[in-house]
């Protein structure tokens, strides 16, 4: 909720970064609403959005980081076009951010075996709040600039280090961790990242070690959740992969095997893409 940092300085480099993607820039400036774009009023451009939860500095980081997790380049929208940062801001300001449904009584063992699940005493909102400055400091120390000012390649290398939660430049003890493959049974899930044996020091303390997985999960949620949650703008995430959203009635198509379904997605509010 705080806004202790003047917004313009923090925003400028970030904005430049995501304006590099052409479609992204168009969506941001509100000039390129898609076809059938809905008579709904244009939302406030991302660079003018006033976060409910994030500080300006935090928001700048999240804009830049989500833009690498789901980049604007290539086919399909990115996190910026789908307004993922707005989604994350609203989530962290709400029940999810407060861990409202979670059991958060002590004692806590944040450094427990990760297979035993989330054990930090911090809520997701607190993890973001405490982790982002640590990551920014890491970027300054290792790369001489804040995350948003780094090149996309350097940003990706920071994200990879965060994914492993290992500082690649510190120490060289050989990691002896077992990297067991997570099984999820039939139906599968998205495959995770690589599991390199790691060297060296963690970037984030045990209490913050789930930051990357929270950020990635929240980014994908914002890409695919119903637009009423602030992301998946104009159902672009759904349209890109061919998901039908809240259509939820297919009896006439069950038997039409290997025939593409002809209708696009609808949202819970009844909007069509």
């Amino acid at each position: 909720m705080s806004s202790d940092v003047p917004s313009t300085r923090d925003f400028r480099p970030t904005r430049r970064g995501f304006l590099q993607g052409g479609a992204a820039g168009a969506a941001l400036t509100g000039l390129a609403a898609r076809a059938r774009a809905q008579d709904a009023a244009e939302p406030v451009p991302l660079d003018q959005y006033e976060p409910q939860f994030f500080t300006a500095a935090e928001y700048a980081f999240v804009l830049a980081a989500t833009a690498r997790l789901i980049p604007s380049e290539g086919d399909g929208p990115g996190a910026i076009e789908t307004r993922v940062p707005v989604y994350i801001d609203l989530q962290l300001g709400g029940d999810f951010g407060q861990a409202a449904d979670w059991y958060m009584e002590g004692p806590f063992q944040p450094d427990a075996d990760p297979l035993l699940g989330y054990q930090s005493p911090l809520t997701p909102a607190e993890v973001y709040r405490q982790a982002i400055p640590v990551v920014e400091e890491f970027c300054q120390n290792r790369m001489g600039a804040g995350f948003a000012d780094l090149s996309p390649e350097d940003q990706d290398s920071v994200i990879k280090a965060l994914e492993q939660n290992k500082d690649p430049l510190s120490g060289s003890d050989s990691g002896a961790e077992d990297t067991e493959v997570v099984e999820s049974g039939a139906g599968g899930g998205a495959s995770g990242g690589s599991a390199e044996p790691a060297t060296s020091q963690p970037i984030l303390s045990a209490e913050l070690r789930d930051f990357f997985s929270l950020l990635l999960q929240n980014t994908k949620e914002g890409f695919f959740a119903d637009p009423m949650y602030g992301g998946n703008y104009q159902m672009q995430g759904w349209t890109y992969i061919g998901f039908t959203g809240a259509r939820a009635s297919f009896k006439e198509w069950v038997d039409k095997h290997d025939v593409p379904y002809p209708l696009g997605p609808v949202s819970i509010s009844g909007e069509r893409a």
Partner: peptide, 24 residues
């Protein structure tokens, strides 16, 4: 349902341009 997971060939990164290409 896409948030719950989209099966991707093993070796596909969990984020970034290759992930986005993979889900498409």
């Amino acid at each position: 349902q896409p948030i719950r997971g989209i099966a991707l060939p093993s070796g596909t990164p969990g984020w970034g341009a290759e992930w986005k290409q993979g889900i498409g």
